[in-house]
């Protein structure tokens, strides 16, 4: 099994957020999670990425034959986990080029691969950026600093396509994108998809799933997954909301 979440319960500041959540993802699969605001979708994403604020009450997570809780944030990232944040943070004064360059090299180092040199990296970054319709001038700016909501999302996808993860978690990457950007971004995702990597896509809109075809759609309510199925579930939700799942 590629990613296996078993009976996961998580609490933050005395509030139980995830309650006995189960989810299995195989290599090459695309999963979508939909659910009302505050049901715990981002919490799940952050627990997977290793954010330290949460208290794990119960459960196990297996990722690529590792006990995920044995790995810290950067080790998970280096093992191929990528989280496109719902709200990417601004890092003033830090340029994307050296930032991503160090990131890709730390991953390569863990995989015992050779580091990529400055020049090749700059080329790679430029070509991926132009694929995603990102202006070269934006590469000169500080990470996320002063970016519009949509620009930040594109930037996340740019980073994803550079780091080429095994498991990409997209937390509402479609929110805030105009229709053209949505096409470009989903195109980026589809290009990256192979039979060896997997996606976990958190979204509120069925629209996204028109562009990225999920193998499974899960409904999350109040900290656990209450229903799983195919794309038809997304259509149902779009029509009737979450009422009947609660």
């Amino acid at each position: 099994m590629f990613l296996e979440i078993k009976d996961l319960s998580v609490k933050i500041e005395n509030k139980n957020i995830l309650k006995g959540l189960n989810l299995n993802i195989n290599k090459g699969e695309v999963h979508a999670i939909m659910g009302p605001n505050g049901c715990g979708k981002s919490t799940l994403a952050n627990v997977l990425a290793g954010k330290e604020d949460y208290e794990i009450l119960n459960g196990k997570i297996n990722f690529k034959d590792n006990d995920l809780f044995d790995l810290n944030i950067e080790e998970r990232a280096q093992e191929g986990m990528f989280l496109a944040f719902q709200y990417p943070v601004e890092i003033p004064g830090v340029n994307i080029t050296p930032f991503l360059h160090s990131a890709i090299n730390s991953k390569r180092k863990r995989m015992n691969e050779d580091e990529i040199d400055n020049l090749s990296f700059a080329k790679l970054l430029k070509s991926k950026a132009s694929d995603l319709g990102i202006n070269i001038d934006m590469l000169k700016r500080s990470v996320n600093t002063g970016f519009s909501g949509g620009e930040k999302k594109r930037y996340e996808i740019l980073q994803m396509s550079i780091l080429n993860p095994d498991l990409a978690i997209l937390d509402e990457t479609d929110s805030g994108l105009d229709i053209d950007a949505l096409k470009i971004v989903t195109d980026g995702v589809n290009k990256l998809k192979t039979k060896d990597n997997s996606f976990l896509i958190i979204t509120h809109y069925q629209k996204l799933l028109d562009y990225i075809k999920p193998d499974y759609v899960h409904v999350m309510v109040n900290g656990s997954i209450v229903k799983s199925g195919g794309s038809e579930i997304a259509v149902e939700i779009e029509k009737d909301g979450f009422q009947k799942f609660q």
Binding site: N72, E74, A77, F85, F99, L100, S102, A103
Partner: peptide, 16 residues
């Protein structure tokens, strides 16, 4: 957290 999620060590992240 953001930097480390991209694979940078804690120390590298602070320095950056």
């Amino acid at each position: 957290y953001y930097c480390r999620q991209r694979g940078l060590s804690h120390e590298e992240a602070v320095s950056l």
